[in-house]
């Protein structure tokens, strides 16, 4: 069985993106919980500038680490500076099979979005699917040049998304500079029910500080879960940090991101099928207080 998986993945990998269909999840399944405290054979950049962003977003001319300072960043994340001149702006933490990435990509076509996932096979699935979708889009679009990318600021479909394997609890700062992100998604994080495993939760009062660091002023953390206890834990965790303000329901009305996170994530669909409740909480990054 393992052999079949390897073969499947290798064949796909060798094929050019225009010729492959979408990957099948069944060849990429993996045990649900990775130990977030152990030294995985992870590779990560020593700092954001040291990472080959160009390789991650091959369609983008200059993925810089142009980290905008919090002061001059737009209050509203959706302004249309060409993606080519900035870095990743949206992070999907624990992206799983990537449902959110694929749904957000056409919604924010000029914004670079990165999925981060700790499980290697799951990451590979998302990468493969991105490659396939990019290939299909290119084939369907006669104006787009083939392999060599034209260095324009406009991206063809699915060129704005990428996925990497990472343990974000440890290595977020290795990827994102201060105030770089406009949105962070935490969709259906592993609940880790046992009390003494809470330190393994991807949200905690101490990790909230790291999310605040990576977010620009005005940026938003989106959280959703079907576990009420985890929902309250996340609300407590972010509310305890004075750098965050919970957004009220009316403020979230019409926010496409909320709809997408409810409807398009794999977990969101599963909860839907099972008739479960989805708890949403979003927090806006406030300005650093004077000191």
């Amino acid at each position: 069985k393992a052999h079949r998986r390897d073969e499947y993945r290798a064949t796909r990998h060798a094929a050019s993106p225009g010729e492959i269909g979408l990957p099948s999840k069944r060849f990429y399944r993996q045990r649900a919980h990775a130990n977030v405290f152990s030294d995985h054979a992870l590779s990560y950049p020593e700092k954001p500038e040291a990472w080959n962003w160009r390789e991650l977003y091959p369609g983008v001319a200059q993925v810089g680490q142009e980290v905008q300072s919090a002061e001059d960043s737009p209050q509203n994340g959706e302004n249309i500076t060409p993606a080519a001149y900035r870095g990743v702006e949206i992070a999907d933490i624990g992206c799983g099979f990537g449902g959110l990435l694929f749904a957000l990509s056409p919604l924010l076509p000029q914004t670079l979005i990165l999925g981060l996932e700790i499980r290697s096979s799951v990451t590979e699935f998302v990468q493969e699917k991105i490659r396939a979708l990019q290939g299909q889009a290119r084939k369907g679009d006669p104006t787009s040049s083939t392999e060599t990318e034209t260095e324009t600021a406009t991206l063809t479909p699915y060129q704005n998304i990428a996925c990497i394997r990472s343990n974000t609890m440890k290595f977020m700062p290795n990827y994102f500079g201060r105030g770089q992100l406009s949105k962070i998604f935490l969709c259906f994080p592993d609940p880790h029910f046992k009390h003494r495993k809470h330190k393994a939760r991807i949200v905690s009062p101490t990790l909230a500080a790291e999310y605040a660091y990576a977010l620009r002023v005005g940026g938003v953390v989106y959280t959703i879960t079907d576990v009420e206890d985890l929902h309250r834990w996340m609300v407590d965790g972010f509310s305890a940090n004075p750098l965050f303000r919970r957004l009220g329901e009316e403020e979230l009305e019409g926010d496409e991101c909320v709809r997408v996170m409810k409807a398009e994530t794999e977990e969101g669909k599963k909860v839907e099928r099972n008739g479960g409740t989805k708890w949403v909480a979003c927090f806006q990054r406030l300005e650093d207080p004077p000191w």
Binding site: D39, A41, S121
Partner: peptide
Amino acid sequence: GESGDVEE
């Protein structure tokens, strides 16, 4: 560090 690919 990962315990391989298991059903999930």
